[in-house]
Design a protein around this nucleic acid. Sequence first.
DNA 1: TAAATAGTGTCTCTAAGACACTATCAT
DNA 2: ATGATAGTGTCTTAGAGACACTATTTA
Lengths: 228, 228
Amino acid sequence: MPRHPVSYVAVDVAAFTIADDELVVLVVERGVGPFRGALALPGGFVLPDETLEEAARRELREETGVDEPVLEQLRSYGAPARDPRARTVSVAHLAVLSEPVSPVAGTDAASAAWRAVADVRRAGLAFDHEEILDDAVERLASKLEYTAVATAFLAEEFTLAELRSVYEVVWGRPLDAGNFQRKVRASLDWVEPTGELRAAGRGRPASLFRPVKSGTAALDSPLVRSSW
Amino acid sequence: MPRHPVSYVAVDVAAFTIADDELVVLVVERGVGPFRGALALPGGFVLPDETLEEAARRELREETGVDEPVLEQLRSYGAPARDPRARTVSVAHLAVLSEPVSPVAGTDAASAAWRAVADVRRAGLAFDHEEILDDAVERLASKLEYTAVATAFLAEEFTLAELRSVYEVVWGRPLDAGNFQRKVRASLDWVEPTGELRAAGRGRPASLFRPVKSGTAALDSPLVRSSW
DNA sequence: TAAATAGTGTCTCTAAGACACTATCAT
DNA sequence: ATGATAGTGTCTTAGAGACACTATTTA
């Protein structure tokens, strides 16, 4: 295609999990310029034979070794000067992992680590990655309402207290345990009891549940963040 | 940036309006190969100094002359072989116009025209534009629920029957006129009465309204597509 | 007058949230 | 027993939807 401008196409990944009741995001410290030494979201260029999603999965695998994370496209960022080296369009992705797997330092990164979202916002991010992070967090909070994505933060079996905690951490406010219990048990899709219990030291043991709908499948009856 | 693959980056626009109580989309007939003669969404390559959104607005302006449409990014499409000529990533956009402005044939297009979405689906579209169209329609239906986008289909002043018709056309089902009336009037953001009436032949004249929130601003209280 | 369209009243049903209560565990 | 956590009951309130009704116009 003659006379048409070309561009670099990258993928960046905002990968989240929960550690110590805090929402944490995977960041790398840039080992090369531009923004050398600054924090950034993991990412890289799309290879000739990859789809965008495959590229994002590969980048995340390179940093974490995780093979099948819940991952979906967020949106693309294409301000002309967002990368000072050359015109680069980034297709950002949102990923959710069930635990903060110890990250592996990748090619471009001096180091990779899980950091609390609030800390990362304070520290700042390279390129326009802070905007990407903000968009990703908002999308995540919103997807908790009407998809089954919350279970992606948890192990294969979990208690309703653990599930509720995901909502509380991401939404940043407490939910009524009783109402949450009733609401979740009433929805026939989403999760089902395994029939087993798990004792957690003191207190009545909790029923264990497993996901019915996985990943980002839509819920029949959403769990809405109320206006307040 | 040596040794990194480059790509063409295009924008495609799914531009909608309503004509004769039908949802119509702007399509062009391709004047050059590949898919010569087939229908496609209007689009083109992003220029070096444009943002993605600016490129989409430019493409739409070239086809319609419209300057300030409601327009937002939909998502990106990047299957390796989606364009047989060369690796091309398309950043699709969703636009809403208040009337089917007579289209101008652009550079790449033998002709441009507004066609009913159902017809276009039957006729088929070039590239992966049918997938883009489906995603755009679904996004549009969904945005009617929680944003003020419905007013973008209408003139500066409109009746509630006209506003309701937008919902009925996009959602493909009738809404109760009385409940719609009450719901819309109750929401303080969104629309406000101008104080004037418009007689439409027979029947009681309707109050005119104007938008308060424009474009894709979020509504305080969503107008939900019920499960049924 | 009748027909048509705009707009209101009102009833029912569902679901969310507050919060008291019961159940089952460890110590 | 006490404290802690899981889970249920129940009341209130808000909102959606169905649908009957009133209001205001043209023919």
